[in-house]
Design a protein around this nucleic acid. Structure first.
Length: 861
RNA sequence: GCCCGGAUGGCGGAAUGGCAGACGCUGGGGACUUAAAAUCCCCUGCCCGCAAGGGCGUGUGGGUUCGAUCCCCACUCCGGGCACCA
């Protein structure tokens, strides 16, 4: 089976073992059974045309080492890979070349798969999934229909980046400094009909669920901040000249209500037209126009200078009946809270800046309890502060005042304690071709009601119909039957943008405009005659799903990628559950991980999955920087190419070096010289086992280890490597093995048993070399089936240990003593030591600190 | 501005209250060789000293402790994230 080379010829050894693994389906996960499982997952790769980079190699080596280790520990390991293949780069390539994105995807996937195999990753390639495969996206569409049914999907006009010159809608990342990335054309915001998912309905659960997850703290905090839960109060303000109309605000400081001297509404607030008095009309119109043309960047980054204009209207402060002016300003966001605020300039920095600029009054209503003076704005709300100038609330603490005011307004039907989130609903559609089509059709209200009456029980219809207006007509979203899934993409002649902002699908009338059979989902182009009774006129959705869709649930499909009747069987879901370890970049800390958690919770509510969190343990690998410490990029010319490194050193060396560079989670620069060190390490292990003639080295002797020191070091190394793998500290496991290698190299002979164990702990890191040498040792069963060696603690205890002797905390000498030597004995020993005695001479011993087996510290003075 | 992470030799890093610098790279010296490569051995934080030895040293300043890279306080710089969220 193995190669015959006398030297460490990795270029022969590595492909040999890769072929053996492939031919034998070595890493196929076993079917659910009594064996304990371990499910390890890499973040879903996008198969770009550029192929694998070092970051991929790092990510996949981390998980591969864990997978190989867990197999050796007796787990049934599920370690799959697949392709998140829908997406913009492929579509843009199709636009440029006219080639079908599916063909391009196939080629890119083939390249990725070949490269993955060349780094020796032990994936179960039988379980590959591809989001663009109709057999896969059938279930993406099915899950989406569950969301639709539960009222979690709706349609709304949302602003997108529109580039008139390119005639297309751009993604955020395609807009750089207010210009299109391609061609630097100006872009503008334009409202487009979009699908939106009601992720905010799950905000509380997404927040609460974080608590028990074994995730990096920073990632949890980022999700927390993104969800942005904020406790406060809603209060309705009456409007002076608009009886019956009220202006609702959200505030976290209702206690400061007596200090509210004006109100601000966002320029987009619905009440603006009615609040604006004729005298202010021109100024307000101008202000709204100016605010609308500002980019998000200008509205946020140039935030220091407050702008705004008075509407002419007044509100009544419900606390004290005072008339206060209502202003419009873009420092209030339409999308948060109620889009309107009560401004308390004395106790809010933003309101303070605004009030100063426009000369509005700034009365203080919070003061230190001890009566000391403060400078405004004074933000403190905890500690010992009390309300002042606040009528009946004067003297109360902020917490007491909040309670009192909330209760008072609740009794009046004017307000209540409430909670707000920063999290927004999720814009879930793209005006693109290369994505999953939405499995609905748009029909008339009459047809919708008739179909729901006739077939509603068999369709996934929501309680409240989802409607939108297309070409001035109100349409109803009718789900296609589950039996009609998947809804496939039509072939198009051109992937060019339509020029209208709609997807290329909108330019295929025979696909968009159809006769539709609601019970079967069949359709024919509307240009043909109506096929028969019960067929209705319908229009398909031209938007497609975003790339997130396929990556929100792929970890479930790996359990049973070929299951045609369900996304995964109960048996598989109960056995494999969710990944035990999920590894990928921190750049997905918020979006992907939040979206997937949302979908998973919906599937849990639907009874599809048995748990309500998808990723219990998460790990982010750090970025590999270029030699110059900068991010690797073609333009900087500091890119290290994995293919070149594998050619020069072999993949075992590459894998080992990537893990050796530093802590797995740290950002670390690539040093092309350092790789020589780990390569030498592997070569010297080869020489320990294989003699110059290619036969087993004469140094390797049969039988158990006879050298006690070697045995102790071996067991210490096994212990260290085992613990470091479990703790994802591979960077310290490798030096431990190097120390053992250094020791063995100096020995005259080494037992076969020692070499055997050494190869076993090396195996996850350098699987090709370890497999080859294992074979050369004459082992007949594969190394990855051998049970992981266990460190024998009894072999680790030494009869004597080095005790460090300090005088006044400075190390002066050491002595070999029994680990449990008595204090009196070591003290005698220390006094007899000339180096110690010199520092004790003429001084009084004040204190003795003795930690057996570690240190003796003599304090003198 | 707010939140988080980090700072250790020429370089990547190790040590989580007890010998600072494991391991690797780089550099220097030596062995082997006709020579080179490969390989092997020794040295390689800074300062004083022929040496033995001594002093200093983990971004800065303080503190706790018999003892601090490690814990606490204040600060500087670097990296990441968020950013008018009322």
């Amino acid at each position: 089976m193995a190669t015959r080379s006398a030297d460490y010829d990795f270029s022969q050894i590595e492909p040999t073992w890769q072929k053996i693994w492939e031919d034998n389906n070595t890493f196929q996960a076993a079917a659910p059974g009594p064996q304990p499982k371990y499910y390890i997952l890499d973040m879903f790769p996008y198969p770009s045309g550029a192929g694998l980079h070092l970051g991929h190699c790092e990510n996949y080596t981390i998980t591969d080492i864990m997978a190989r280790y867990k197999r050796a520990r007796g787990f049934n390991v599920l370690y799959p890979i697949g392709w998140d293949a829908f997406g913009l780069p492929t579509e843009n390539y199709a636009v440029k070349t006219g080639r079908h994105p599916a063909d391009v995807t196939k080629e890119n996937v083939a390249t990725f798969r070949r490269q993955l195999k060349s780094i020796g990753v032990s994936y179960d390639f039988d379980r590959e999934v591809d989001t663009t495969d109709p057999k896969y996206f059938r279930w993406t569409q099915w899950i989406w229909l569950q969301l639709f049914k539960r009222g979690l999907a709706y349609v709304q006009d949302k602003p997108v980046w529109w580039c008139p010159a390119l005639g297309t809608v751009l993604a955020n990342e395609e807009v750089i400094d207010g210009k299109s990335e391609v061609g630097s054309h100006p872009v503008e915001r334009r409202p487009v009909r979009q699908w939106v998912l009601r992720i905010t309905a799950y905000a509380d659960r997404l927040l609460a669920g974080l608590k028990d997850l074994d995730w990096p703290d920073s990632t949890k905090r980022m999700q927390e901040a993104w969800i942005g839960r904020s406790e406060g109060s809603e209060v309705d303000f009456d409007i002076a000249d608009l009886p019956g109309e009220r202006l609702r605000v959200f505030t976290t400081r209702v206690d400061t209500l007596y200090g509210a001297t004006y109100m601000v509404v966002a320029p987009e607030h619905a009440l603006v037209p009615r609040l604006t008095k004729p005298a202010q009309q021109a100024a307000v119109d101008n202000y709204i126009k100016a605010a609308a043309s500002k980019s998000d960047l200008e509205r946020t980054e140039l935030a220091k200078d407050k702008t705004g204009t008075f509407t002419g209207s007044y509100a009544i402060n419900p606390a004290n009946g005072q008339k206060i002016p209502i202003w419009i300003a873009d420092y209030v966001l339409a999308s948060y809270g109620t889009g309107a605020i009560m401004a308390v300039p004395a106790h809010d920095e933003r309101d303070f800046a605004f009030a100063q600029k426009f000369a509005l009054p700034i009365p203080q209503v919070i003061a230190p309890a001890d009566g000391s003076a403060v400078t405004l704005p004074f933000i403190e709300k905890g500690g010992s502060v009390v309300l002042v100038n606040s009528g009946e609330c004067t003297g109360l603490t902020p917490a007491q005042a909040k309670e009192r005011l909330d209760a008072r307004f609740a009794a009046q039907g004017r307000g209540k304690a409430t909670v707000q989130f920063k999290l927004r609903d999720w814009l879930f559609s793209r005006q693109r071709y290369w994505g999953e089509p939405f499995p609905i059709v748009w029909v008339s209200e009459a047809d919708y009601r008739a179909v729901v009456a006739a077939h509603g029980s068999k369709l996934l219809v929501p309680t409240a119909p989802v409607t939108c207006t297309i070409d001035g007509t109100v349409r109803y979203a009718l789900p296609i039957p589950e039996s009609a899934l998947p809804l496939q993409l039509p072939t198009v002649k051109s992937y060019q943008p339509t020029g209208t902002g709609e997807s290329p699908l909108a330019a295929i009338p025979e696909w968009i405009e159809i006769w539709y059979h609601p019970a079967t989902g069949e359709s024919v182009p509307s240009s043909q005659p109506q096929p028969g009774a019960g067929w209705i006129r319908a229009r398909r959705e031209s938007n497609t799903m975003p790339q997130w869709a396929g990556s929100c649930w792929y970890y479930l499909r790996y359990l049973e990628p070929d299951n045609a009747s369900t996304l995964a069987s109960k048996q598989a879901l109960n056995y494999w559950g969710v990944p035990d370890l999920y590894v990928g970049g921190a750049e997905h800390a918020v979006l992907h991980l939040l979206y997937a958690r949302f979908w998973h919770k919906v599937l849990f509510d639907e009874g599809v999955v048995p748990t309500d969190e998808p990723f219990r343990k998460l790990f982010h690998q750090g970025i590999i920087l270029g030699e110059d410490g900068e991010k690797m990029s073609k333009s900087r010319g500091n890119v290290a190419n994995p293919d070149d490194i594998i050619r020069d050193y072999g993949t075992d060396t590459l894998r080992l070096y990537l893990m050796f560079l530093g802590p797995l989670e740290a950002m670390k620069p690539w040093n092309p010289k350092g790789i020589e060190g780990v390569h030498r390490f592997l070569r010297s292990i080869w020489r320990e086992v294989v003699g110059e003639d290619g036969n087993l080295s004469a140094k390797v002797v049969a039988g158990p280890e006879t050298d006690a020191q070697t045995e102790r070091l071996l067991h210490a190394t096994i212990k260290k490597v085992t613990e470091d793998i479990e703790g994802l500290r591979y960077n310290t496991a490798i030096p431990a093995m190097m120390v053992l290698r250094n020791h063995l190299q100096k020995a005259d002979r080494v037992s076969r048993a020692t070499i055997r164990a050494f190869l076993q702990i090396l195996q996850p890191f350098a699987p090709h070399l370890a497999s080859e040498l294992w074979d050369r040792l004459g082992e007949t069963t594969p190394i990855h089936t051998a049970a992981w060696p266990v460190a024998d603690e009894s072999k680790l205890v030494a009869s004597t240990v080095k005790l460090v002797i300090q005088v006044n905390g400075k190390m002066r000498s050491d002595a070999m003593v029994a680990p449990d030597a008595a204090e009196a004995d070591v003290l005698t020993l220390a006094r007899a030591d000339a180096k110690v005695a010199a520092h004790l001479d003429g001084k009084t011993l004040r204190k003795v600190i003795y930690v057996p087996g570690r240190i003796l510290n003599l304090v003198v003075g």
